[in-house]
């Protein structure tokens, strides 16, 4: 109980860092070759201040894990990066969000184009009520990425292969995607996301609805995908964060408390809150 009280007090002190100026994130928020750069990002849902002055880079070919207790703003953060918060009534986003230097929230930024470049995988697998093939072909079709049926076939098969699903489903591509197992559905959703060839893939707790074996497969897949994509993954599992990510960002009450290399965060965190969380004292 005493530790919980002190935690809250720390967080309160954290809202207004001594000396004003820079937000008090501990660690290096920069990446060497950033795809995504966020500076002073804020999100309000109506009266709620869900994301408070967050700055973070996500580098090319890098997996960044976002961890923290429920309601700490990590999902809110990644939903800013492909503007999925636009679909939420009363959400207001301020601050600087850039993809390859372009302002994500600029009026001339087309949200449709943005989302083809920043793909997303959701917490619960959400295949469309279509065949497996059509699920993957959906994105390429609406964006006109394939000029012929054979090109489309190539994209679909390639995406399924990269998602590690092709061997399991190649005999039943015309069967509904909803008939697959949970883990297969989630890999189908990943295949669907990479079929439009994004630069960044956002994953919002992609394994929380899956069993350990399916989770292990997805984690292997994330590892492979990181050779071609920048990946931001929200997770509640610290083991998962440790296994798949190169860097870890710890969120607390809408603030980004600490960023650092994965092994440093888990073995030698600098901030008290981070230490409390990764050692399991709360969360």
């Amino acid at each position: 109980m005493a530790s919980r009280i002190s935690t809250t007090m720390d967080a309160a002190a954290f809202v207004a860092p001594a000396g004003g100026g820079e937000p008090g994130t501990v660690g290096d928020i920069h990446a060497s070759d950033p795809v995504i750069t966020v500076r002073g990002g804020n999100v309000h849902y109506g009266e709620t201040h869900a994301l408070k002055n967050v700055s973070l880079d996500i580098g090319r070919n890098e997996v960044v894990a976002l961890i923290g207790p429920s309601g700490c703003g990590k999902s809110t953060f990644i939903r800013c990066l492909n503007r999925m918060n636009d679909t939420i009534e009363g959400a207001r986003v301020t601050g600087e969000f850039r993809l390859d230097g372009q302002d994500i929230y600029a009026p001339e930024m087309d949200v449709v184009m943005l989302r083809t470049r920043v793909g997303m995988v959701f917490q619960k697998p959400n295949p469309f009520a279509k065949s497996i093939y059509e699920n993957v072909a959906y994105g390429p079709r609406i964006h006109g990425l394939a000029r012929s049926r054979s090109e489309l076939d190539d994209i679909v098969y390639g995406s399924l292969r990269r998602a590690g699903l092709l061997d399991e489903v190649k005999d039943r591509l015309d069967r509904p995607g909803t008939g697959l197992s949970g883990g297969q559905q989630q890999r189908l959703c990943i295949a669907r996301a990479i079929a439009v060839n994004p630069e960044v893939i956002l994953m919002d707790e992609p394994c929380s609805a899956l069993d350990p074996i399916a989770t292990a497969r997805i984690e292997d897949l994330i590892d492979e995908l990181s050779q071609n994509y920048a990946i931001a993954i929200v997770t509640h599992s610290m083991q998962q964060a440790a296994r798949v990510s190169r860097r870890v960002a710890y969120f607390h009450l809408g603030m980004l408390v600490e960023v650092g290399a994965t092994d440093k965060i888990f073995t030698n965190p600098s901030h008290r809150l981070t230490e409390d969380y990764v050692t399991g004292r709360f969360g």
């Binding site: 492909n82 999925m84 679909t87 449709v112 184009m113 943005l114 989302r115 083809t116 793909g119 997303m120 959701f122 619960k124 959400n126 295949p127 469309f128 009520a129 959906y138 994105g139 609406i142 964006h143 959703c189 669907r192 996301a193 439009v196």
Partner: peptide, 12 residues
Amino acid sequence: SLRDGSLALGAT
């Protein structure tokens, strides 16, 4: 979730 999935793929 189906709408989100589609919108996140860049569908209008």
